[in-house]
Design a protein around this nucleic acid. Structure first.
Length: 316
DNA sequence: ACTAGCCCCTGGGAGC
DNA sequence: TGCTCCCAGGGGCTAG
């Protein structure tokens, strides 16, 4: 599922592929007005306005805040995309078939082995048609959102109001920024110092961008049991948690994200971090820590599954 | 001010 | 083979 490293990889990919392109059209089949928020393209009236406002605008920059993709347009608006569980963005050439009611968009290529033909890439519910305005490159390209379970949220915010918007204003600091120091890490986690540390790490208002996979991996590396309370964790383990938070998130980016589930990059290709897991979804396997010999267990904490070593992850 | 639990959604896997 | 049921979970929301 897209966490900080997957979203960062996506954002970098979108920027590389789409900078300088102009949005000329948008299409969606998200349509759940009974549950949709007012400011979400799942609301048909909102989508109509959304499409009108983004059409003709140029993509000038792309950035990330927590697990949100931010596509900044030349007209002072920013498209905000939260991919939730199963969303991922891809860039390429697609064609539309009006005869197919379900998933009518497919890659223009017919080669079944082409990465865009991966079944996980065939749940396209949002399409931006992009054009370069130079006559030599007038061919249309598409930036699409594949989202098997349709949890994604897409909205449009005036760029100057971004940080103050309800989507971003509650978010805690970015763990990979230089300003994110050990003191800030401690200060943030102390706010929920009595909650299981697993839940505190997932709390986006404390630290941004960590999800279920990376929190399991950070706690495994630091040797901390997921049910420990932060207030009881001694300083050496706290320092390890801090260092591994940065290190493991960076490693996730270096490996191109985690595709154990359905995350794919901008080209429709899987990342490789799933091969690096030490804990997440390794239930019943032998702990890989040198000389440990423990077993990876699974436990539900805060209605999220948590994976940890029975032996070297200590309860504090 | 907490937290537990529901909800959105669909494909994959287990069990029969 | 095919049906039913359970599970995956980010984050918004409500109820307690």
């Amino acid at each position: 599922m897209p966490e900080l490293p997957e979203v960062q990889t996506t954002v970098d990919g979108i920027y590389k592929k789409t900078k300088g392109y102009t949005v000329v059209d948008a299409w969606t089949d998200y349509n759940s007005p009974s549950h949709a928020e007012k400011n979400n393209i799942k609301n048909p009236a909102f989508f109509k306005e959304f499409k009108k406002k983004i059409s003709g605008a140029k993509i000038i920059r792309c950035s990330r805040r927590a697990k949100n993709i931010l596509i900044h347009l030349s007209n002072q608006y920013t498209i905000l995309i939260h991919m939730k569980m199963t969303g991922h963005m891809m860039f390429g050439q697609y064609s539309y078939s009006s005869s197919k009611k379900k998933d009518p968009w497919s890659p223009a290529t017919l080669d079944p082995k082409h990465p865009l033909n991966d079944p996980f890439n065939r749940h396209i519910h949002l399409v931006f048609t992009l054009e370069k305005q130079s006559p030599s490159q007038s061919e249309s390209k598409h930036l699409v959102l594949s989202d098997m379970r349709k949890f994604a949220k897409v909205t449009l915010i005036e760029t100057k109001h971004l940080e103050a918007s309800p989507d971003l204003s509650h978010l805690g600091p970015e763990p990979l920024e230089e300003q994110f120091t050990y003191n800030i890490f401690v200060k943030q986690l102390e706010k929920r110092g009595k909650a299981p540390i697993k839940q505190a790490l997932l709390d986006q208002s404390l630290i941004s961008g960590i999800g279920n996979i990376y929190s399991d991996e950070i706690l495994w590396a630091a040797g901390v049991h997921p049910q420990s309370q932060f207030l009881n964790i001694p300083q050496p383990q706290r320092k390890k948690m801090f260092l591994y938070t940065k290190e493991i998130l960076k490693k996730g980016i270096d490996f191109g994200g985690d595709s154990m589930s359905d995350y794919r990059n901008i080209d429709g290709l899987p990342g490789a971090f799933q091969g690096q897991h030490k804990a997440y979804r390794k239930t019943k396997s032998v702990c890989e820590k040198k000389g440990c010999g423990g077993t990876i267990l699974r436990m539900v904490i805060g209605s999220r599954s948590s994976h940890f070593c029975s032996d070297h992850q200590k309860m504090f």
